[in-house]
Design a protein around this nucleic acid. Sequence first.
DNA 1: GGACACATGTAACGGGTTACATGATTTC
DNA 2: GAAATCATGTAACCCGTTACATGTGTCC
Lengths: 225, 225
Amino acid sequence: MKLTTTSYAVLAQLALRPWSAYELAVQQERYFRFFWPRASRALYNELRRLDRLGLAKAQTESVGRRSRTVYSLTPAGRAALMAWLSTPVVPLALEFDGLLRIFSSPLGTRDELLANLERIRRDVAGMTELNDRIIAEYGAGQAPFQHQAHIRTLVVDFFTQFLDVTEQWAQRTAGEVAGWADLEAAGKPLRALDRIHRQRHGRPPAVSESGQPAGGVMPTGSQRP
Amino acid sequence: MKLTTTSYAVLAQLALRPWSAYELAVQQERYFRFFWPRASRALYNELRRLDRLGLAKAQTESVGRRSRTVYSLTPAGRAALMAWLSTPVVPLALEFDGLLRIFSSPLGTRDELLANLERIRRDVAGMTELNDRIIAEYGAGQAPFQHQAHIRTLVVDFFTQFLDVTEQWAQRTAGEVAGWADLEAAGKPLRALDRIHRQRHGRPPAVSESGQPAGGVMPTGSQRP
DNA sequence: GGACACATGTAACGGGTTACATGATTTC
DNA sequence: GAAATCATGTAACCCGTTACATGTGTCC
């Protein structure tokens, strides 16, 4: 009867109101895919499991001749969900295939690396588009559960920042690589260390050799009140 | 014979030099865990598979009475890896359990939400520590494959930014929530929309009601040359 | 001589993906 | 009347995790 994070993702949705399995899958795809991506098939299975466990209740309705299953949270389900809130978090995990390609880019050409950076950028741009659509929804007051906007926007905040920083990184990196003739070392490693050092600690070595202000990166950190 | 990203992660390592399975597992844990996390057990299996497929070659050496298997890349393996570099990237995926807890925080108390933000912050701080250690390694010229520092620091760059932005977000969000008496709506949703709007587009509504400059967030974007 | 790193191995299981099937309803 | 959406279902498969076992070498 061990519950997974996916179980709680479903319970969290059910806590808001009863949903049909299909509705839930759509919501999951739209709002959860960024931080807990699962194929919608997993949802259907999880719902049946939660029903078996008594944490959700399945009820079959019919729309015309077609039937659908509506799930609602049981008191036990609500209790389980609340208890979960005070357990340790699962460490965040990132799967970023693109970085692996950069890692092995010395086997290929400079242009291949640039192409991969562009692919990454487009991937991120796609996510940004979806994120913006959600923001617009809230802005227009048309998002579901608008009365929880103060909570949900906290999550949206994270992604806005995350996507922004990732896109900036991809562009900045492409700019850097575009300035190279090839991928050979030839002095590049040392310049790279200089760059990384500047990013981490403001920019201590007085003036950088290029005069360019650290590649447009402003470390916005450490200015908390 | 379909290869997974994990296969290429291993091949990418083997492209640098031959490794024993154990060495590889250690390296994987240290350098790849951030963007392609896998239990080291998966490595051992993948290596044997690559050997079967002729993409890597296993050779048993012995150190004293203890034996170990050293794997090296075959020409076929190198070809497969190079071919992979020009295939589409796998969309990046994030699993962030903590955000799900925020999402369902209205079921709990304000303090529980703050506790979860703190757990998130500690999780990120742990990753930051590891990242810093790697940066220090490169700075000291003691990192493996220092001659590829110009490539590898591109990846490190990403994580420095990513971790920074995530930690800032966690702190800023905790600051926001700490200013609330509870988690009830009571005007908070509207203020949240205002905040999210400021973040996205500079801060158009002249001066914010609090006088505080948008919670310390400087959108560093869109200032590319 | 005890702890710790080295260096694998086996086995079970399980969450999740992919592929596919099926039909009903709505919309253009 | 065709396409898209609604609304599930079944089945195979597999990548990966967890748990555990087993022994060797090294260092203090």
